[in-house]
Amino acid sequence: MSPLAGPALRWPARSEAGMGILDGLMKAAGGGAGPLDAITQMLGAHDDGLNGLLKSFEAEGLGAVAQSWVSKGANLPVSAEQIQAVLSNSTVAAFAQKLGVDPQTAAGHLAQLLPQVVDHLTPNGEVPTGALGALEGLLDKFK
């Protein structure tokens, strides 16, 4: 069974006291570093990292959705179909392979996790320099 299978994933709101980004992401992902590693690699594969990913959403007409993840307000949802439209089939397939699930399931997991990851990488409402490095720093704690 996939580490992401089971009930819908939920990311804690920024205001939930006592739960840091690492705790929340690991709880949402089932405790393993696999999804974090796969998302980090996916972000690293985009030209310009997180900014490149956000530009990909904008190019597909989903700029307002992606910007909501960066802003301080509520995150707008994204569907598995929209994830597949924004990301290449090979990107979704690579993510799926890392998690041991089919591409459609992987797109669904990305639709749940990616807004939350971007949200927590941009706590001040803007993309910081080295946002990908912050995520990689989380992974270093598991090596």
Score class of each variant (00 low, 15 high):
35 P>E: 06
35 P>W: 03
36 L>N: 05
36 L>A: 13
36 L>F: 12
36 L>T: 06
37 D>C: 05
37 D>Q: 12
37 D>T: 14
37 D>E: 15
37 D>L: 11
38 A>Y: 04
38 A>Q: 10
38 A>R: 09
38 A>C: 08
38 A>S: 14
39 I>G: 02
39 I>W: 01
39 I>R: 01
39 I>P: 06
39 I>L: 13
40 T>D: 12
40 T>M: 03
41 Q>I: 00
41 Q>V: 05
41 Q>R: 14
41 Q>E: 14
41 Q>C: 02
41 Q>G: 15
41 Q>D: 13
41 Q>H: 12
42 M>E: 08
42 M>D: 07
43 L>D: 02
43 L>N: 04
44 G>N: 14
45 A>W: 03
45 A>K: 11
46 H>E: 15
47 D>F: 02
47 D>V: 10
47 D>W: 01
48 D>M: 03
48 D>K: 13
48 D>H: 14
49 G>Q: 13
50 L>F: 07
50 L>D: 08
50 L>V: 13
51 N>Q: 13
51 N>P: 00
51 N>Y: 08
52 G>H: 07
52 G>C: 10
52 G>K: 05
53 L>V: 07
54 L>F: 03
54 L>S: 06
54 L>R: 02
54 L>M: 14
55 K>G: 05
55 K>P: 00
58 E>S: 12
58 E>G: 15
58 E>A: 15
58 E>D: 14
59 A>M: 05
59 A>L: 08
59 A>Y: 02
59 A>S: 14
60 E>V: 04
60 E>C: 11
60 E>H: 12
60 E>Y: 02
60 E>D: 09
61 G>C: 04
61 G>E: 10
62 L>H: 10
62 L>M: 07
62 L>P: 02
63 G>A: 09
63 G>V: 03
64 A>T: 13
64 A>F: 09
64 A>V: 07
64 A>L: 11
65 V>S: 08
65 V>M: 00
65 V>L: 01
65 V>G: 01
